[in-house]
Simulated assay, not measured.
Amino acid sequence: MSEAAVSPAVDEDEAALANPFVRCLVRLIRAQDSYGSWEGKSDAELLADFIVTRKQRHAMPVIGDPEPDVLWRLDMFYTAVGLAIEERSGLMTSPMTEMKPMGASDAWCSRPGGWSLCRDIHRFGFETFRKLAEAGTKLVDDATAAIEAYPGVAPA
């Protein structure tokens, strides 16, 4: 009996879903499920809304108001970054993301690494699970490196 060939994309998704940051994000999302409606869903199903393909992104307007679901995903992502930093460093962290309407639904986003003007926050998402894992891991790695570089500043 021969084994079925597994596509590289499936292997890549499985590896991304096993990433420590992604595991942290999944735990956080599952903790939000107070009614058990996500109990039977796989991790990939829970994170499916974080994936926004290029085709989906192009179908969205350049400037638009973010829906509550998008803001929730943005909050979950950055809260997971904070939790992963806390797990690694032992220091309590919390994300600082503030959304303020500025004209045509622009928003100022405070995020690890600095402030940026987010005109397309309604398009928040990642091309693949691998890119989701890479983005979260990079933010965690950068913050952890800063904590290690300046050990006296972080606990102050």
Rank of each mutant, 00 (worst) to 15 (best):
S2G: 12
E3L: 11
V6D: 08
V6N: 08
S7H: 10
P8I: 09
P8T: 07
P8A: 07
P8M: 05
V10F: 13
V10H: 12
D11F: 13
E12D: 13
E12L: 11
E14W: 12
A15R: 14
A15P: 07
A16V: 04
L17T: 14
N19E: 15
P20N: 09
P20S: 11
P20C: 06
F21I: 00
R23D: 12
C24Q: 15
C24K: 15
L25V: 00
L25E: 00
V26Q: 09
L28N: 09
R30G: 12
A31L: 06
Q32L: 09
Y35K: 13
G36T: 11
S37V: 14
G40K: 08
K41P: 03
A44M: 14
A44S: 15
L46D: 05
L47I: 10
L47T: 06
A48C: 14
A48N: 14
A48P: 08
I51H: 07
I51S: 10
I51E: 14
I51G: 11
V52N: 07
T53S: 15
R54S: 14
R54T: 14
K55D: 07
Q56V: 04
H58Y: 12
H58A: 15
M60A: 07
P61W: 05
P61H: 11
V62G: 01
V62C: 02
I63F: 12
I63T: 12
I63N: 07
G64N: 09
D65N: 12
D65M: 12
P66R: 13
P66F: 03
P66V: 03
E67F: 09
P68G: 09
D69L: 04
V70P: 04
W72Q: 09
R73I: 04
L74I: 03
L74H: 03
L74R: 00
L74N: 03
L74E: 02
D75K: 02
D75V: 01
M76P: 00
M76D: 08
F77T: 00
Y78T: 03
T79Y: 05
T79H: 06
A80V: 01
G82S: 08
G82L: 04
I85N: 03
I85D: 07
E86D: 05
S89G: 01
T93R: 04
S94V: 05
S94W: 08
T97K: 04
K100Q: 15
P101K: 06
P101L: 09
M102A: 10
A104M: 15
A104W: 15
D106S: 05
A107E: 02
A107S: 11
W108L: 15
C109T: 07
C109I: 14
R111F: 05
P112S: 10
P112Y: 13
G113K: 08
G114H: 06
W115G: 11
W115P: 05
L117V: 06
C118F: 11
I121H: 10
R123N: 08
R123L: 02
G125R: 06
E127I: 01
E127M: 03
T128H: 02
T128N: 02
T128G: 01
T128S: 03
F129A: 00
F129P: 00
G136H: 03
G136T: 06
K138F: 08
K138V: 03
L139V: 04
V140F: 11
D141C: 05
D141G: 01
D142A: 09
D142K: 04
A145L: 06
A145N: 05
A149V: 01
A149N: 05
P151G: 02
G152T: 13
V153A: 08
A154E: 12
P155F: 06
A156R: 03
